[in-house]
Amino acid sequence: MTDLLPVVLAALWGALTGALLPRAAYRFTTPQGMPWRTACEAADHPLTGWLGTTPCSQCPHTKAATLPLLTAAICALLALATGPRPELAAWLALTPVAVLLAAVDVRVHRLPDPLTLPLTPAVLALLALAAWLPDHTGTWRTALYGALALGAGYLALHLLNPSGMGFGDVKLAPALGAALGWYGWPTLMLGTFAAFATGALYGLALVVARRADRKSAIPFGPFLLTGTLLGVLVGAYTS
């Protein structure tokens, strides 16, 4: 039971933080170039605050169960893989933001700057704190190098093919490179490969199901985040 306590606590943390994401997800889900929502579409009620269990506190929306369940599951997996090591606190703090980014990108193909731009310094700061604590298993220097490498790589892909790699993905990449780089270059390469592999498989499935063609745009942010999660899980478990 003692070994499972961090997992249970992590799942509870994920469920509680995930339950507060629906309002932020709703406010951020506007088309590219449009301002964030300030009122609900149903009754034009002003939207107050960014955290809440429903998109609008004045509308009788059913509480969304998907985000809390997803956040809780991811936090539990991270706790299982990482164990009671200092970097687990960083992963748990970052998970709700990652879930929110994925939820918004799936809906409107947009990665909001207020979430992506502060994410890289936040990841590096949290991992720097973890590096000062005993029993950590990663390296902050490779986290920094990973952020630079993945950011530069995705920027190059964007410049070569802007329609295939959005600039929102470029802004997200350094934070993910830092998380993967914490566990070393093999983890960085694994997470990057997993992102492209899962994205390619999803695109292929859409084409086979005739729900898209080879020129259809798909949100890549969720696959970036999924690949990073897989890489971090493997890196944490094997370190």
Rank of each mutant, 00 (worst) to 15 (best):
R37K: 13
V207T: 14
V8K: 10
L94K: 04
A173E: 09
G199F: 07
A89K: 03
T192G: 15
L69P: 01
D105N: 04
K171G: 10
A89Q: 03
I218K: 03
T142R: 05
T187I: 11
A102T: 12
G146F: 12
A175S: 14
W50G: 04
I218R: 03
G138I: 12
C59F: 01
A98D: 00
V106T: 07
T192A: 15
P46S: 10
P46T: 06
C75I: 00
V208T: 11
L188C: 02
A179K: 00
A212W: 13
E41L: 13
P60E: 03
T228C: 13
W13R: 10
A128V: 08
L77N: 00
A178W: 00
L9P: 07
W140L: 09
L88D: 03
S57Q: 11
L225Y: 07
A10D: 14
A43L: 02
F223H: 15
R211H: 14
L4G: 15
P35N: 01
L67F: 02
A209L: 15
G52D: 08
P112R: 02
S216C: 12
A42E: 12
Y183F: 15
H45T: 09
A79N: 00
G181Y: 05
T187C: 09
A102K: 07
S57N: 08
P22T: 07
L229D: 10
D105W: 04
H45S: 12
A103W: 07
P219I: 13
A194S: 14
D213S: 15
A205L: 11
G177C: 11
Y154N: 07
R37L: 01
A131W: 02
G14E: 08
G221S: 05
D213E: 12
P84R: 05
L77F: 02
L144A: 15
V97G: 06
F28T: 02
V108R: 06
Y202E: 11
L155F: 11
A173R: 11
H158E: 13
A143P: 10
L9F: 09
T17A: 14
L225Q: 08
P174N: 06
A102S: 14
A93M: 05
L101W: 06
A10I: 10
L5S: 10
S216M: 13
A195C: 06
P31A: 08
R214Y: 12
W50P: 04
G168K: 05
A102W: 08
T30F: 01
